[in-house]
Every structure is written in C-alpha cells, then in structure tokens.
C-alpha cells in the first residue's frame, strides 16, 4: 500500500520556496552536495524537488502505514522507491543510496530492517528530512527479537540515536540541517505531562502565560514548539552540535492535517568534553510567529496569532541564517 501522505500544494511550496533555497545555500557553503537521510514517499517527491542539491540518500520506507511491520504485507512501496532511486542513479543525479525496508523507528533501534539488512550510518548526513506526519508523541510499535514482543519506540528516541551516530561520523563540513515535520497536535498523556512539568518548572513562564489564552490547535502547536525546541536542543548540544531553530512552518497538509515543519541548522563545536550551549534565544524563538505557504502567491508568508503578541518572522531563510549568532561565530 502506498503511503497516504501524498504531496499537497502547500507541502510543495514549503519544499520549493522555503526548503530549497536553504539547501542551495548550504550546498554552496559546503562546496559539496548534500547527503540526505529521510522518509521519502515511494514517489520520492522531496528528493526529486531537491535533486540538484543531493547526491547521496539514506531512505526508509514502511510497507503498510501505520500498521506494525509484518512479512505478509506487500513490499510494493519499497520496490517503487527503489525503482525511483535507481532511475536517479542511471541519470547520474545521485552517486549512491541506501534503502531500508521498515519504519525508521524499527530500523534504527533494531539495527536491521525487515529483510535483515543491517543499518549502517557511515556517511556524515548533511540533510535530515524526518517527515513523520503523525504526532511526535505517537510511538511506533517495534518488534523486539529478544523479548519476542512489540515495544513502543518514540520518535525522539530515534532522533537521539541518529544524532549520536552522526556524532561518531562527524566529518567535514561538520554542519547539517534537519527538517522535522510532525502533526501540529500535541496531546495525549505525554503532552499533558509536559505542559504540567513546564508550568511547574516555569520554563519561559511569560510565553506559557500568554499561550494559555489560546485554545485548541493554536495552543497545542505552540506547546509543541516549546517541547521540540527543549528536547532537541538537549540532544544536539550534548553531541556538541549547536542548533539554530529557524521559524516554524505551519500548514495544512493532505487529509486536512495540521502540520508543522521545524528547520534546525546544526554546527559542530569542539569542546573539552562538555556539552555545547545554544546561542539562540529560546524566548525569541517561542514568541516568533509561524510561516505558512500561500498557494495563490506561491510563496511563504508570516502567520501570527490574532489573540497574542508575536514577532513577525523573517521569510527569507538565507537572511535568517546569515544573521544568526552561530553563523557569524562559526561559518564566517
């Protein structure tokens, strides 16, 4: 069964107008094409859109989303993606690729895919496109050979493992970009626990006070920003990668889902065994509005709340990067 996450017009604008210029900028800065690691669809739309800036691909393809993997499921989606990637090889658009059969959660955590191909991350990845589409707190059920049981694996665990591996492979250019797309909803037990915790610990209390005036998805998506920034910053910094979170994109995806895309630029910092420290203002990031695709004008536009004060975000990703502290400290 082919993934139901087909490309939408909004998504295409995000990829072309927001992501692509950034990738072009990074390719020029690194003076080499990017190594992609992600979850493309069988048609590999993101890869096709970004092909001018990619020359190596690590791809994961599940069989029957969202059901847990099962050998009886058709592997048509994987065959289709393989065929697409082979075409890119034939056209000399890419140098090589790795394709894994299974959910990223199961392949990364088990160290092998559904057809027992071992998972190796030997290349330094410069572009992570983690397009999960469902909620960040929704676990994937992964079969554990040892216990003979399905176990919950959370996306953040997977991201943490990937960043750990990336640290081991650290090599020139020591910088990478991560696009993380998840459902804008932030609910269930994990989410309410998080909100309780940050309210108790008063992490950015002014922001929290402000967003409590909002309801529904407007509030959830802002708590989600808080959660993702807080969690990922820790992962990145503990591996000596200083993160720079660009404005978050909020859009309506296929199937009328509210999606958000985080874009994080990471730069390696050599420390004497200590974690790195983010140079970015958490408060500024939280209080910044969103970007959203405008299908009529075919561009990205700012999207701020009518009910609370928010900083209007810059829409040009290059201007955002080049004005960032990390850029000026490490990239210039």
């Amino acid at each position: 069964m082919v993934s139901k996450f087909n490309s939408s017009a909004n998504k295409e604008i995000v990829r072309r107008v927001w992501n692509a210029p950034l990738l072009e900028f990074l390719t020029t800065r690194f003076d080499k094409k990017l190594a992609y690691f992600g979850l493309p669809s069988p048609r590999a739309e993101d890869i096709h859109d970004w092909i001018d800036w990619i020359d190596f691909i690590v791809a994961f393809q599940c069989r029957d989303y969202p059901k847990p993997s099962d050998p009886s499921q058709s592997d048509e989606a994987i065959r289709q993606l393989e065929s697409n990637l082979n075409t890119l090889l034939r056209k000399k658009k890419i140098n090589d690729y790795q394709l894994y059969d299974g959910y990223i959660e199961e392949v990364v955590m088990r160290g092998k895919d559904n057809v027992l191909q071992e998972f190796h991350l030997e290349n330094f990845i410069t572009l992570f496109n983690l397009d999960f589409c469902n909620e960040i707190t929704v676990p994937q059920y992964v079969y554990n050979d040892g216990t003979d049981k399905f176990e919950k694996v959370y996306k953040l665990h997977v991201i943490k493992k990937i960043i750990d591996l990336q640290r081991i492979n650290n090599s020139h250019p020591e910088r990478f970009v991560t696009f993380l797309t998840v459902n804008a909803n932030f609910w269930k037990k994990e989410a309410s626990n998080y909100l309780t915790q940050i309210l108790r610990e008063q992490i950015e209390p002014d922001f929290l006070k402000k967003i409590m005036r909002l309801k529904g998805v407007d509030r959830k998506v802002r708590v989600l920003k808080h959660y993702v920034y807080n969690s990922l910053s820790t992962f990145f910094c503990s591996n000596n990668y200083i993160p720079e979170f660009l404005p978050v994109v909020f859009y309506r995806g296929s199937g009328d889902q509210n999606l958000v895309q985080f874009c994080i630029i990471c730069t390696y910092e050599a420390t004497m065994g200590n974690s790195s420290i983010s140079r970015q203002s958490f408060s500024h990031f939280l209080n910044q509005g969103f970007l959203t695709p405008d299908t009529e004008q075919n561009q990205m536009i700012p999207m701020i709340s009518d009910h609370i004060d928010e900083i209007i975000p810059e829409i040009n990703p290059i201007d955002i990067i080049t004005s960032a502290n990390v850029y000026n400290e490490f990239w210039n």
């Binding site: 393989e82 082979n86 034939r90």
Partner: peptide, 9 residues
Amino acid sequence: VRIRRNTIT
C-alpha cells in the same frame, strides 16, 4: 555491479 532487493544493474 549493483544488487538490491528488486534490481540488479
């Protein structure tokens, strides 16, 4: 020679 699960090139 490249061999994948579905293709040999």
